[in-house]
Design a protein around this nucleic acid. Structure first.
Length: 568
RNA sequence: UCGGGGAUCGUUCAACUGGCAGGACAUCGGGUUUUGGUCCCGACAAUGGAGGUUCGAGCCCUCCUCCCCGAGCCA
């Protein structure tokens, strides 16, 4: 069974794996496979990164290869160690252990030496122009660029100037080192791209050692080559950079075959955003509470919300890899979460919006106090090994307001005057009376129970159409629950106005206080996910006791019917 | 405008070198059920358009249309 599943995974086929097969056949890398996950430490990992992580590691693992984590830390203006730590933490949570952890900044010395080499070969030059000026000269789509007046400086001058840039003799923005390629090239990336820029900023790892910093293009492929990466997987928007990636590597004296880049479509999901800029705005503007607000698609938010790492991994494996720009339904991710949680989450009972139910014929004990019963309920019908637990039961219970109606609509099977339902694992009860407040709102439901139906089964075999959950009033634990809806109302936030904020769902979070929990809920470990029977999966908050976040609701047939009927 | 990519059920991923277009999610219908959950069964539904090659085209050729990415000293 397990082997079959593994085999199934390994027989997965797509254009990237076909490439691996071809490389294996041609002995291009002597059978070696190495990938890397290369985040920039300037933000938190989100669900989109998860796809890349899963792919990078899967490709390596399937081929008995290695996968490193490499921080692409070439821009000191935006990066920070705190992100480095967070990324390592999130990666571990997702379930991956890199074979090594590297930083692009580890290679600054080598990069500098190689830059001097390019200068010596007449393939790089120092440009004294401003950024604006250089941009103008770059031309445009279908419009060739023009060459910089500094393009033909001698190697000696370039070497000297580059050395002085490095020594900090020039202020930021006054000079750059550029590769000398082709200002007429149809690919804009090849129009003398910038290799080094001056930054008078402290780098989170190299401190004040450097005054110049390499650009992404001048660092990435070289880092790959130094580490022995064979397959450099990245997202589609880097497609045009591939020519430059190859060009740089071709100029260098490498003693191993150069790695090569292959692109795939990034993961997009409906009803959310994954751009760093937009996520940051949501946090900065206080739309959400922070980077781990359970409504966000960041990994730490999903973790806090109760998404199992395994569900995310399975989802990423399932959607596969393609070059098509696609936006997956968030429902698909949720279905993986439900599948996983259905198997792993213990069942408990919780009443979110309590309504008192009094059993009028409940017996008293010898001292005249209401009899105290204890019911035994299975912890997980999907897994016998989880055993069962004892749940107190008595004549005063809390039930869900939604589970009682004075005037039940068609197809409503739950409690109503005169109707009999099952209290899950308890008894069959029949509603005999209802106490309402001044406005006619039910505040107390009176029932009579059938003593013959302990456990919920009727000896005479009669059926009831509904089973509802309950919490014994005398032993109930008070707590709160945070209910989450989509953060954005539309599938593609901002598609109408261009600004996702315009599509924000104002009711994306509802916090309920004074919910009634069965006693066992006191013992749920922080972060643990349980199923509140008939309601959904809920994750215990990692900081606050007796606060549960709704991971995802259960499929709800009754809600569906109501929606079909025109909604009410 | 130029270059690079892409287009298959509502969504998404398949269909080995041309051979009955398949799965998942969603939707709809039914069965089982002490969760209106799970599980099971069934239904719905697609090759962007026009030509061409072929016994046969999602796949090959031509033309067209639409979508995404690219003119940071961001990555």
């Amino acid at each position: 069974m397990t082997e079959d599943e593994l085999d199934g995974d390994e027989s997965k086929s797509d254009y990237i794996r076909d490439l691996l097969l071809a490389d294996a056949a041609s002995e291009r890398f002597q059978g070696r496979v190495q990938t890397r996950f290369p985040p920039e430490p300037n933000g938190f990992l989100h669900i989109g990164h998860a796809k890349a992580v899963c792919l990078d590691f899967a490709i390596a693992t399937e081929n008995q290869g290695r996968c490193n984590l490499r921080f692409d830390d070439t821009n000191p203006s935006t990066e920070d160690v705190s992100y480095v730590d967070a990324i390592i933490e999130d990666l571990a949570w997702l379930g991956f252990t890199p074979d090594a952890v590297h930083h692009s900044s580890d290679y600054f010395d080598q990069l500098y030496t190689w830059a001097e080499l390019l200068i010596s070969k007449g393939l790089a030059y120092v440009d004294d122009q401003s950024a604006d000026h250089i941009a103008e000269q770059r031309g445009g789509f279908g419009r060739p660029g023009i060459e910089s007046p500094f393009r033909d400086r001698t190697k000696e001058t370039n070497l000297e100037l580059f050395g002085r840039m490095c020594a900090g003799e020039f202020t930021a923005g006054t000079r750059v080192l550029r590769a000398k390629i082709d200002m007429q090239h149809e690919n804009m990336q090849m129009r003398d791209p910038v290799m080094y820029r001056i930054r008078d900023e402290r780098h989170h790892r190299t401190g004040d050692t450097w005054k110049i910093y390499p650009t992404y293009d001048w660092a990435h492929g070289q880092g790959d080559a130094i580490e022995g990466v064979t397959h450099s997987l990245c997202t589609l928007e880097f497609s045009d950079n591939r020519a430059l990636y190859d060009w740089y590597l071709a100029q260098l004296p490498l003693d191993t075959p150069p790695p090569y880049q292959t692109e795939f479509a990034r993961l997009e999901l409906t009803h959310t955003v994954t751009s760093k800029r937009q996520l940051k705005k949501l946090v900065d503007d206080g739309v959400v509470d922070g980077w781990d607000d359970p409504r966000l698609p960041t990994l730490r938010a999903l973790r806090r919300r109760g998404y199992p790492a395994k569900a995310i991994r399975e989802f990423c494996g399932f959607i596969g890899v393609a070059r098509t720009n696609a936006r997956h339904d968030i429902e698909l991710l949720e279905s993986f979460v439900r599948t996983e949680l259905n198997l792993s989450a213990s069942r408990r009972m919780a009443v979110l919006n309590p309504l008192k139910l009094v059993i009028t014929n409940w017996p008293t004990d010898s001292s005249g106090e209401p009899f105290s019963d204890v019911r035994n309920l299975v912890n997980n019908p999907e897994n016998d090994a989880e055993g069962s637990r004892e749940v107190p039961f008595s004549g005063e219970l809390w039930i869900e307001q939604d589970d009682f109606k004075m005037d039940p609509p068609p197809k409503y099977f739950r409690l109503a005057p005169g109707r009999e339902v099952r209290l899950r694992g308890g008894y069959l009860v029949t509603c005999t009376d209802v106490v309402c407040d001044d406005e006619g709102v039910p505040v107390e439901v009176h029932c009579e129970y059938d003593p013959e139906t302990a456990g919920g089964a009727a000896p005479d075999g009669r059926k009831v159409k509904a089973t509802i959950h309950w919490v014994d009033a005398a032993n109930a634990v008070d707590g709160s629950v945070a209910l989450y809806e989509r953060l954005f109302k539309t599938q593609l936030p901002g598609s109408e106005t261009g600004d996702p904020v315009d599509d924000l769902n104002e009711d994306s979070r509802e916090v309920l206080q004074h919910c009634k929990f069965e006693p066992a809920l006191k013992d749920v470990a922080p972060g643990q996910v349980v199923q509140f029977e008939r309601l959904g999966y809920f994750a215990a908050d990692t900081d606050r006791d007796l606060l549960f976040h709704r991971t995802v609701g259960l499929r709800d047939e009754w809600a569906r019917l109501q929606k079909q009927g025109g909604g009410s």
